[in-house]
Design a protein around this nucleic acid. Structure first.
Lengths: 151, 151
DNA sequence: AGCAATTAGATTGCGCCCAACTTAGTTGTG
DNA sequence: CACAACTAAGTTGGGCGCAATCTAATTGCT
């Protein structure tokens, strides 16, 4: 009996959680926008650069798998990164379907200028180490569950 | 000494948290897309309808404050909701600058068809009540902190 | 070998999000 | 009262996210 929830409460709870997530995501993106402005990167572009700084070169497919983005998002994004001079694209020789993305010297150099971004973001979030880890774990759980539920 | 974190670790931690948030937000939106498909609503449109179901009628400004959306997002979104027959817009009489959004009978009727959306979403998230509340609280905290940090 | 199924990437179209700007109405101050 | 400052919506433009579609290359099956 005490575990019963009225539909109205559910409606509001629901809005609060999903809305909180939505709002937090946009708040994060907003701070990233400020912090990344100097580098001329958007947040998704920064994510792509992060993966490249870690792996040096990657096929588009790999980047998409790592960041959960499809070619409809990545193709124009990578084109913009290429125009900005941060990356280079070439067809793979082993598999002509694949396009390998590599860092240009400029893209490599950007890494140093982005070095303090994580610290600034961690500061801005204002979370303790424990809260940080708890949040990350819960988000991973919910993402896994939602993906499974959505087919 | 044990609290020192190397820059590389920060880079990776950083990516994990912000990326987790980004991914979770998109995973949620993906399930909403599935669940709301029958109603012909997108997730942001559903949020607007939720606020209207709760308040019956609201000026655009109020909706924007509640959902943290500006007119650049809301104006076309509300126009689509109006075209779909869910809402009606009229100029306020007290303040001619303001536009008041009201539910049409169709928009009111949609409420019943959306009644089980929260339950389905809560199920899909697979979180316990406690996890649900913890997540919501952490997200609220981080959003507040980020907003403050971002001016 | 030959052909269907699959895969990688690109493109198109729509909706959201935000910044910047415009227009119209309101408020405040001298 | 007049006029500057402010406020509410709307519009425009750029970028992201995703579904649907297309092309080209590869793989698998017989």
């Amino acid at each position: 009996m005490t575990t019963e929830i009225r539909a109205d409460d559910l409606l509001r709870l629901d809005r609060q959680l999903c809305f909180s997530l939505h709002a937090a995501s946009r708040a994060f993106t907003g701070v990233y926008r400020t912090v990344l402005a100097d580098l001329g990167l958007t947040y998704p572009q920064y994510l792509v650069m992060l993966t490249l700084w870690e792996h040096d070169e990657l096929p588009v497919k790999e980047i998409g798998d790592l960041l959960r983005l499809d070619s409809g998002t990545l193709s124009p994004l990578l084109k913009r990164l290429e125009t900005a001079g941060h990356v280079h694209r070439r067809r793979s020789e082993e598999d002509e379907r694949s396009v390998v993305v590599t860092l240009t010297p400029e893209g490599e150099a950007l890494r140093a200028r982005a070095a303090d971004v994580p610290r600034r973001m961690a500061e801005a979030s204002g979370l303790t180490r424990d809260e940080f880890q708890t949040l990350r774990a819960l988000l991973a759980t919910v993402t896994t569950n939602l993906d499974r539920a959505n087919l």
